[in-house]
């Protein structure tokens, strides 16, 4: 069973398609990193899933049920754009309203639980408008966690946070996904952070799904490369091009792709009279993979 199954979904605004015949599959239990540049249709897709927007065509199923099914919707938690909190109400009151809305029995206990998860238990009495951006994001996550959600939809939860806030948010997201085991759809620009937690990825561009892959797929497709610097970069580059099939000059380094033989490379350069000043082994991550995919599509 899939947590989210989207087929042929389209949504236009004044004739312009924000989401165009999109297909998407999020397996149950996945942490799905939803990636795309600004305006690619990530947030629109998430809003469509949450029922905030009305699709032009296509189908959305959540856990094999129509997305408007009240039973399945009662177990969806979302943080999209803003937290949906009343600024003059306290953190506690905002959470209480959502707990009442969801018809939870032990409301106070449930609020305490989610506040502990997001490390906000000492700020429950604070008015929402007095909270910092990082705190507001955490409250939004707490709100989404109320009522034991089976599916969490988080739109850019790390955006705008400082380094410390980002670290805390990542830890919270890891806690949620590992300990509470719900399916999570996260969109983020910060691919390095996403890579640390996601099990599946979907790459969207101009409203269309370019590619869906698992973390294992990415691992399999990830190229290994050796990057190095020498005194005579041009000479070394020419020598290496003769020996290896994929050699590139990138970011002030010579990169030799798909070769996992540092000693051989160093030996070859020494023999050629190009002593190595700096050398390191690397692996293409999500960010490089994404950039490469985008440049391929643009080409």
């Amino acid at each position: 069973m899939n947590a989210i199954e989207i087929r042929g979904l389209s949504k236009s605004f004044r004739g312009l398609y924000a989401v165009d015949n999109l297909n998407m599959t999020v397996p149950v239990g996945a942490i799905y990193g939803f990636i795309g540049e600004n305006g690619s249709g990530k947030s629109t897709t998430e809003k469509l899933i949450c029922g905030h927007l009305v699709p032009d065509k296509g189908s959305i199923k959540l856990f094999d049920r129509k997305y408007t099914n009240a039973g399945v919707r009662a177990r969806v938690g979302a943080l999209i754009e803003n937290t949906g909190c009343f600024p003059n109400s306290s953190v506690w009151d905002n959470l209480m309203m959502q707990a009442i809305n969801l018809g939870l029995s032990d409301r106070a206990g449930e609020i305490d639980r989610v506040l502990r998860i997001v490390r906000m238990e000492d700020n429950a009495k604070l008015k929402f408008k007095k909270c910092s951006l990082g705190m507001k994001q955490r409250i939004g996550i707490a709100m989404a966690l109320l009522g034991d959600p089976a599916l969490l939809i988080l739109d850019e939860p790390i955006n705008g946070l400082d380094a410390e806030g980002m670290k805390m948010m990542r830890e919270i997201l890891v806690d949620i996904t590992r300990q509470y085991g719900c399916t999570v759809l996260i969109s983020s620009h910060i691919l390095g952070e996403l890579e640390k937690i996601a099990t599946h990825y979907g790459i969207i561009r101009q409203g269309k799904m370019l590619e869906e892959l698992t973390a294992k797929d990415l691992e399999g497709r990830a190229k290994v490369f050796t990057s190095l610097k020498t005194q005579n970069m041009q000479g070394a580059f020419g020598l290496l091009r003769q020996k290896f099939p994929d050699v590139r000059a990138e970011d002030g380094y010579i990169r030799i792709y798909d070769v996992d033989d540092t000693e051989g490379i160093v030996g070859l350069l020494m023999q050629g009279g190009f002593p190595v000043r700096e050398i390191k082994k690397n692996k293409i991550g999500l960010e490089e993979y994404y950039i490469e995919l985008m440049s391929k599509k643009e080409a």
Binding site: C50, G51, H52, Y67, T68, N69, A70, R73, A74, V76, G77, A78, I80, E81, N82, T83, G84, C85, F86, P87, M97, Q98, N101, L102, M143, G147, I153
Partner: peptide, 18 residues
Amino acid sequence: GHDYRSGYVKQLFTTHAK
């Protein structure tokens, strides 16, 4: 109006489809 201005209505409609 506060429902819409605060975005709370989105929380409501996420969990309540009706």
